[in-house]
Amino acid sequence: MKNRDLLIGFATGVAATFVVKELVDRNQKLYPADEVLKQVKNSFKEEGPIDGSWIYMKTEPYTQHAVTTDVYKGGITRHRDDELEQFEFMADAFTGAVVEVSKV
């Protein structure tokens, strides 16, 4: 009987650990400088070289059509046809997906 109780306790602990880890991973934000900015820069590099980039390290709430999420704001600068182009972007803090890009 004691071995069975020990096995049940161990299995319960493992299951609880797995559930807690999944919940934490779902709500964890990406680190902006390492992941979000890198993803956005790689997307812009497909169209040509970039000169500079920046990103705010704090998230801001962003609402679009009754859906609210936290986003990182940032920007990209590049030269195209001897003309300076500047873009501002907002990227989802949880997935890194770009939700809005605007030319400045």
Rank of each mutant, 00 (worst) to 15 (best):
Y56C: 03
E22R: 07
V14T: 09
E100M: 13
M57Y: 06
F18R: 11
H79M: 14
A91Y: 04
D81V: 08
S53A: 15
N42L: 13
W54V: 00
E46D: 07
G75K: 05
A16N: 03
Y62A: 03
T63G: 05
T17D: 03
E35V: 15
A15M: 10
G13N: 01
R4Q: 09
Y31E: 07
G96S: 05
V67N: 08
R80D: 01
I50E: 08
T68I: 04
K38Q: 12
N3I: 10
M90P: 03
K29H: 04
V24S: 02
Y62R: 08
T68L: 00
T63H: 02
T68R: 03
R78I: 06
E47T: 11
E35W: 13
D5H: 11
F87M: 09
F44D: 07
Y56I: 14
P32R: 04
N27G: 04
F94D: 09
K21I: 13
V104R: 15
A15H: 05
E88T: 09
T63K: 11
K41L: 01
D51H: 15
V20H: 07
A11D: 02
R4L: 02
N3V: 05
Q86W: 09
T77Q: 14
V99F: 00
T63N: 06
R78D: 00
M1S: 04
V40L: 04
E35L: 08
D82C: 08
A66L: 14
V101S: 03
K58D: 08
R80I: 10
I76R: 07
N27I: 12
H79I: 11
Y62Q: 05
A66C: 06
V99N: 03
E83R: 15
K21D: 02
L23A: 03
K38N: 12
D81G: 01
A93K: 15
T95V: 00
T17S: 04
V14M: 09
N27T: 12
T63F: 02
V24K: 10
